[in-house]
Design a protein around this nucleic acid. Structure first.
Length: 549
RNA sequence: GCGGGUGUAGCUCAGUGGCUAGAGCGUCACGUUGCCAACGUGAAUGUCGAGGGUUCGAAUCCCUUCACCCGCUCCA
């Protein structure tokens, strides 16, 4: 006897971030880290349900991209057959890795704040020039840009309260010089780029965007190392090892999941901007001539993956970076972005970046840190600023005998951001009838069955007449295949609703009829429909559900 | 880093100097229950974010600090 349910159509989900955060805490998806001590800014923990969700996401990714990859046939949209494999590298690596990758220089910016305008600037991006008018001499500044000269003039005119026609009253002296090169004793003459009064800039302060640590119990400054800010470099530095230790041939993708660390300046938006986060990255190595086609293949394939696991196409966009944003060696970079509920309408947050990186990374680890123009960056002494490994990371095609430095396509996804997006997408309040047939609000997490922390719950309809015994046996049988949950407490309707909030796609109920004919009902989370199957068919029925959609 | 807001039970929140800090939901036990949370009875639950101060007395006023949210900034 199945219920007569009318609310099968899917209403527009309520997407209130506060309610989602509240449910995450209440049901054990996510907790603030070190909460009993007041929390730790930018760090979040996964609870009993959250850890299963995140594991399922990572396992789905690894399964879909790596272990189940079909390397015998050309995939739809792919230029050719290709191989996939994986590695697992350490979080702490040789410090030179980050110097050659560019992270060391980029992640060590000195910043100055303006006390008046509250703006923050990179210290090395401010330039200025001495100027004198009305008997006063100041150092007017502007941010480095194409219009920096006009900006300087405008800043100075504003300060001296001069009209455009009187601007010749200003006497400029010397060339435009970087603020970095200005003598510190002149600080009180500096007019900040957006200030009206003098001397409003703070001391330059170092922003360590990488987490610094020390190798060795007695280590000092010479033993400084960094927690990786991305997993990608572990793949690049192991490229040669993978090629030499296997019989893989290009094109080849090497996958890795793992924690990365960045000192985000502003951790914000629940887990979206965390300082410790987990990545799922692929570095796909291919021949330079085909790299454009592979880039488009991966971009589209990764976009489709999120949709296959339930993210709505309406809330996903593929944002191609403009040509002006790209390093000149790159054919393209596309961000896969999701309309998170904490963002204003029309704005999207990045889930994954797919970029064409040319041979930048492998060459950097061969020769040393490269500029964006792919030239070796030199220090003041004319030697390489950061010396590479000197190892030959090029690839020899043993069929054509051609030797080349492979190009790389990098689909780089955030596991925590994916988890957050799936949770946001899944959160839904709909209407379901109570025992009197009156419609009640129901909170349900419509997670894809593959991602759902618990695949099925098993209930005896009532806690008597031998039903618990039958249900427990089914529970133990299912447990060999899936993460399942047993509950015999309270009214069955309440048990259903609890599973709805946990996102459990199926509830199996043992009732009076089960005792006679060895059948049970399976209730679908989204439609509330029940179907009756024999006890022996339960595993197959759930497996079918996991495979569908 | 700046400005604004918030912080009281697992969750949502009430409580603006005066009894032993409350409510709803949730949780647990027993009973009831034969399919969608709100039937009965009973129970547990709080460093009032943390530290310090003022006061006879502080969840409440003051200072410091931490976290979260919003807006700048940042997003390499």
């Amino acid at each position: 006897m199945s219920l007569d349910v009318t609310s099968t159509q899917r209403p527009a989900p309520t997407r209130n971030m506060e309610q989602i955060v509240s449910l995450c805490k209440r049901r054990g998806y996510m907790f603030q880290n070190s909460e009993i001590y007041g929390g730790c800014n930018g760090f979040w923990d996964y609870g009993p349900l959250g850890v299963e969700l995140k594991r399922n996401i990572k396992e789905a990714w690894w399964h879909d991209m790596v272990t189940s990859h079909n390397d015998m046939e050309v995939l739809s949209g792919a230029p050719a057959i290709y191989s996939m494999t994986g590695i697992d590298s350490t979080i702490i690596m040789h410090p030179q890795v980050w110097k050659c990758s560019g992270h060391y220089d980029l992640f060590h910016d000195f910043m100055v704040d303006c006390r008046e305008s509250k703006k923050r600037y990179r210290h090395d991006q401010i330039v200025g020039r001495w100027v004198q008018a009305k008997g006063k001499r100041i150092f007017a500044t502007a941010q480095t840009s194409e219009q920096e000269l006009e900006q300087l003039e405008r800043q100075a005119m504003k300060f001296f309260k001069l009209r455009a026609k009187n601007k010749e009253q200003m006497e400029w002296e010397g060339d435009v010089i970087a603020l970095v090169d200005l003598d510190v004793e002149h600080r009180e003459s500096v007019l900040a780029p957006d200030a009206k009064s003098l001397d409003t800039l703070t001391e330059p302060r170092e922003f360590n965007l990488m987490f610094k640590t020390t190798i060795g119990a007695l280590g000092g400054e010479n033993d400084a190392a960094f927690l990786r800010p991305e997993t990608a470099q572990g793949i690049f530095v192991n490229f040669k090892n993978v090629i030499d230790s296997t019989r893989f041939r290009l094109p080849l993708g090497i996958a890795q999941t793992g924690k990365s660390f960045r000192n985000e300046i502003t951790p914000r938006n629940f887990t979206f901007r965390s300082r410790e986060f987990e990545q799922m990255e692929i570095e796909f190595f291919c021949h330079p001539d085909a790299s454009g086609d592979w880039y488009r293949f991966w971009r589209d394939r990764r976009m489709q993956w999120y949709q296959d696991l339930g993210l709505s196409a309406d809330r996903l966009i593929l944002r191609e970076h403009a040509a002006s944003e790209l390093a000149h060696y790159s054919i393209g970079t596309a961000d896969i972005e999701y309309a998170f509920p904490f963002l204003p309408a029309g704005e999207y947050g990045e889930l994954e970046g797919v970029s064409h990186r040319g041979d930048f990374d492998l060459r950097s680890h061969m020769e040393g840190k490269l500029t964006k123009e792919l030239e070796l960056e030199l220090g003041e002494d004319g030697k390489p600023k950061h010396r590479g490994s000197g190892k030959d990371l090029s690839y020899r095609d043993d069929l054509t005998n051609e030797k080349f430095v492979p190009h790389v396509i990098e689909p780089s996804a955030g596991a925590d951001r994916a988890a957050l997006a799936f949770l946001c997408e899944a959160y839904c309040e709909d209407q379901a009838p109570d025992e009197k047939g009156k419609m009640q609000t129901r909170t349900v997490m419509r997670l894809h069955p593959r991602l759902a922390p618990i695949k099925a719950a098993v209930f005896p309809l009532v806690k008597k007449d031998g039903m618990p015994e039958v249900a427990k046996k089914i529970y133990l049988d299912l447990k060999k295949h899936f993460n399942v949950f047993y509950d015999d407490k309270g009214a069955v309707g309440r048990r259903y609703r609890r599973q709805d909030e946990a996102g459990t796609p199926y509830c199996i109920t043992v009732d009076g009829q089960s005792l006679d004919d060895q059948t049970v009902t399976i209730r679908d989370r989204d439609t509330l429909k029940q179907s009756r199957v024999s006890i022996g068919e339960c595993v197959a029925a759930i497996q079918e559900g996991l495979a569908s959609q």
